[in-house]
Design a protein around this nucleic acid. Structure first.
Lengths: 185, 185
DNA sequence: TGCATCATGTAATCAGTTACATGATTTT
DNA sequence: AAAATCATGTAACTGATTACATGATGCA
C-alpha cells in the first residue's frame, strides 16, 4: 500500500490541507496514484495519530479554515525506509484488453467507437503532459548543477509521455485490427 | 468491475474449473487482469446463481472431481452489453513513480537497485511475451481469412509487448537520471 | 436565487488480500 | 516420508468506492 507514501511525497513537495491533496490527486501525482478525498481524510487522520504528519490550523478570510498538514520526522523516516524496500510492480488492470479479447465472441466492430474514445482520452492527456513539460521543464534550470526534485519530477513526467505515446500507437494497431472484422468491409 | 467479464471471456475461450481459471489468471488473461482463486470461487458462485454460467460435475480418475463452468446465454448477453458500455480507463498505480519523486527527499542513489530489479522483471516478461508470440502467432494462420479470436488475442499481446518495451526504455532513462545524483559521481 | 468552489467529514457497501482449512494423488 | 500439484472452499481484514451530509463564500 502506497497511499501513505504518495501523501508523504506530496506533502514534502508542499504542505497542504486534505482538500488540497485531493486536488493534487486529480492531476500531478494523481497521474501515477489515485485517491479520493474520503480516502485522503481517513489516511491523514491515521498518519496524524501515528505521528507521521503535523497539523496546523490555518484561519482564512473569505474561506473556511483549513488544517495544513506537513511531514514530521517519523514520516520522513517511514518514507526513506519504504524507498529501499522491494515492492512488486502493481497488478495491471486493462479492461480494454479484456473487451478486445471478448469482442471475438460478439461483434468486433461494435468496439470501434469505444476504442476511439480511449484513443482520444490518451491524445488529450499526452497534449496536457507536453504542455506541462514545456511550462515546467522547457527552459534550462534556473541555477547550475542538478536539482534532484526537478529532475526526478521530469523523468516521471517523461514516463507518462512515453506511456501515452505507446498507448496511442497501440490503439491505432487495435483499430486497424478491428477494421478487418467490420461488416461493411 | 470487470472480473466477471474477464471470467466470461476466459470461459468462452475455453470452459474450465475455478482452479483452471485461477491458473489462467497467472498467465494469459492475467497479464491484463489479476485475480486470486478465492476471488474467482466467490465470483463464480455469484455468476452461477445469476444464471450467467452453467456448471457440470466432471469425475476425473487419479484427480479430485472438478466443476466445469461454461458460459450460459444470459452471461453471453451480459458480456455483449458490457462491451458497448463506455468504461473509464482503469486508474493507474505506479509505485515506482511515487518512489522516484520521493527519492528527491532522501538518497536518490539508494533507488538504483530497486529500479534495476524492476527493469529485470520487465525484460523477463518481454522475453516471455515474445516467446509466446513466436509460438502462437509465428506461422501464417492455419486457414485463410481473418480469425477474430486469434487476431484479437494477438493484438492484445502486441500491446503487452509494446508496454514492456516502453517500460524498459523508460527505466533506462530513470537510471541515467538517478546516476546524476550518485554520490560516487 | 441558484450554482460553483472551498472545506471537512460519516456511513454503507463492495472488492481484494491474507490466512486458514481440507483432502487426494503424484513425484522426489 | 515429504513436498508438490490438483481441487475447493471459509473467515477475517483491509482498502476503495459511492452515497450522503453540512455549511460558508463568491459569482452570475
Amino acid at each position: 500500500m502506497a497511499l501513505e507514501h504518495a501523501i508523504l511525497v506530496s506533502l514534502l513537495e508542499k504542505p497542504g490541507s486534505g482538500y488540497e491533496l485531493a486536488r493534487r490527486f486529480e492531476r500531478s501525482i494523481g497521474y501515477f496514484w489515485t485517491a479520493t478525498h474520503q480516502q485522503i481524510y481517513r489516511v491523514l487522520k491515521r498518519m496524524e495519530s501515528d505521528g507521521w504528519v503535523d497539523v496546523r490550523d490555518v484561519a482564512q478570510y473569505g474561506r473556511p479554515d483549513k488544517k495544513e498538514y506537513s511531514v514530521a520526522d517519523p514520516g520522513r523516516a517511514a518514507l526513506a525506509a519504504w524507498l529501499t524496500e522491494a515492492t512488486e510492480p502493481e497488478s495491471v488492470r486493462h479492461d480494454l484488453a479484456v473487451k478486445i479479447r471478448g469482442a471475438a465472441f460478439g461483434d468486433p466492430a461494435a468496439l470501434i467507437s469505444e476504442v476511439e474514445r480511449h484513443r482520444q482520452a490518451h491524445t488529450d492527456r499526452l497534449a496536457h503532459y507536453l504542455a506541462g513539460e514545456a511550462r515546467d521543464f522547457g527552459d534550462p534550470p534556473p541555477h547550475g548543477g542538478p536539482d534532484a526534485e526537478r529532475e526526478l519530477q521530469h523523468v516521471v513526467l517523461r514516463g507518462g509521455i512515453a506511456y501515452e505515446r505507446m498507448m496511442i500507437a497501440w490503439l491505432d494497431d487495435v483499430l486497424a485490427t478491428l477494421a478487418h472484422f467490420d461488416t461493411d468491409h
